[in-house]
Computed example of a mutant assay.
Amino acid sequence: MLPIERHRYITEILSQHGRILVNELALGCQVSRETIRRDLVQLELQGVLLRSHGGAVHIQTAIAQTEGKQVISEIVQGESFRKRSAEHPDQKARIAKRALSFIKAGECILLDSSTSSWFLARQIPDIELVVLTNSLHIIQTLACKENIRVIGLGGEFSAKYEDFVGILAEKILKDFVINTLFFSCHGLSLEGGMRESNEHHARLKQQMLQASERKILLVDSSKFGRRSFVRICHYHDIDVVITDQLADEEFRQELAWNNVLVIVVPATTTGKSYAT
Results as ranks from 00 to 15, higher is better:
H137E: 13
V150N: 04
I151R: 04
R214A: 06
E249K: 15
I216A: 04
G225P: 03
R252D: 01
D244T: 02
C233H: 01
L190M: 10
A256M: 08
F251H: 00
Y161E: 05
M208Y: 02
L217G: 01
S184P: 03
L217H: 02
I167S: 10
E254R: 15
T133V: 08
A247K: 13
M208D: 00
K205M: 04
F157W: 12
S197A: 10
I151C: 02
L142K: 08
N147L: 15
R195D: 06
A202G: 02
I242D: 00
Q210L: 15
V230A: 08
A143E: 15
F176C: 02
L136W: 12
D248G: 03
D175N: 14
F229S: 11
C185F: 07
H234N: 15
S221T: 05
L136G: 05
L217C: 09
I238W: 03
L153I: 09
T243I: 01
E254M: 14
E250T: 11
E254P: 07
F157R: 09
V165M: 07
I167K: 13
M194T: 08
N258L: 11
C144L: 15
I139A: 15
F183I: 09
R227W: 09
D244E: 00
V177G: 01
I238E: 02
K160Y: 09
K160L: 08
I172E: 12
G193K: 08
I148C: 12
G225N: 08
Q206T: 06
E191W: 11
L136R: 13
E162L: 14
A247L: 14
R149K: 15
L132R: 03
M208A: 08
L142F: 10
C144F: 14
I167N: 10
D163T: 13
T180D: 05
K174P: 06
R226T: 12
K171N: 13
Y161D: 06
F182Y: 07
V150Y: 08
F229G: 07
H186I: 07
I139L: 13
N179M: 03
W257Y: 14
I238T: 07
L246W: 02
L217E: 00
L173W: 00
T243V: 06
E191V: 11
G166P: 03
D220V: 01
H201Q: 10
L181H: 01
S158Q: 01
D237M: 12
I138W: 07
I216K: 03
S228F: 05
Q207H: 15
E196T: 03
G155K: 00
F164Q: 02
I151W: 06
K145A: 12
A211R: 01
Q210H: 14
E156D: 11
Q253N: 13
R226I: 10
L142V: 09
K205A: 01
S212C: 14
G193P: 07
K160G: 04
H236C: 15
S158L: 00
L136S: 05
D248P: 01
R252L: 13
Q206E: 13
S212Y: 10
R195H: 12
K223F: 04
D248I: 10
E156H: 12
L204F: 05
Q207D: 10
F176Y: 11
Q207N: 09
L209V: 10
L218F: 05
Y235H: 10
G192Y: 07
E250R: 11
A159F: 14
S158G: 05
Y235N: 08
K215Y: 12
I139H: 11
R231L: 08
N198G: 01
H236F: 15
E170Y: 02
